[in-house]
Amino acid sequence: MDLGLKGETALCLAASQGLGLACAKALAEAGVKVVINGRNAERGKKAVASLGNGAAFIPADLTSDADRARLFDEAKRHLGHISILITNADGPKTGPFLERNLDDWRQGLELTMLPAIDLAQRCVPDMTARKFGRIINISSISAKEPTPNTPLANGLKLGLIGAMATLAREVARQGVTVNNILPGPFDTDLLRRVAPFLVAKPEMPQEEAVKLYGERAPVGRIGQVAEFGALCAFLASRQAGYMTGQSVVIDGGHVHAIY
């Protein structure tokens, strides 16, 4: 399928590894010129080499207001305009609700919600002017079915969905769509880190917990990041122009709710 994205451009946040990088790869393969961001320059360079198609890496800490402003300016300079924004973030602190404090929640807001909101606000004017734009937020199934021991992510990722649902309706007439992808268990570092909490066995070795978590999904395995990238590229495509404000689950049947 030709996604109709040749000559388009994308800024992918927190995309030097894992799901973010998978999105960048799928977009680059569809002919999109991509800027990826991350904190680790070494990892960024390696990631960019795997992309081609004029891709660039811009280091930035997404929790810093100044870094985000610089990231946007540099990305725009490199790309000319930004037609696709993929937002992503490191997971906030884990552990029981009752062990977190209000400052944990405040930090969670800065990490999980505000970077996506800020970059969306910066990118939207060009998107609406060109009558084509795609904002895709990498969320989590925990925004739909809260997982134990990840109260910050459960709360704040749902908060971002509420915010983005509003933006989706504001820009729907201008050819801009705003959607969320809700991944279940995928083969990433982040999953390895939180897996023991997800299976409610904090003491279990990470690899074992990952396997157990995967087995709980009806499909019996964790997802491959390339599968995730493909969904992202589809949502960014010309074909997906009538889908907006949606939260699409990709989880091997993990979520039990019908809707």
Partner: peptide, 13 residues
């Protein structure tokens, strides 16, 4: 819309 949804997720946990 955003912060009230966040509250639902937090309280669900």
């Amino acid at each position: 819309n955003g912060v009230k949804a966040a509250m639902v997720g937090a309280m669900a946990t």
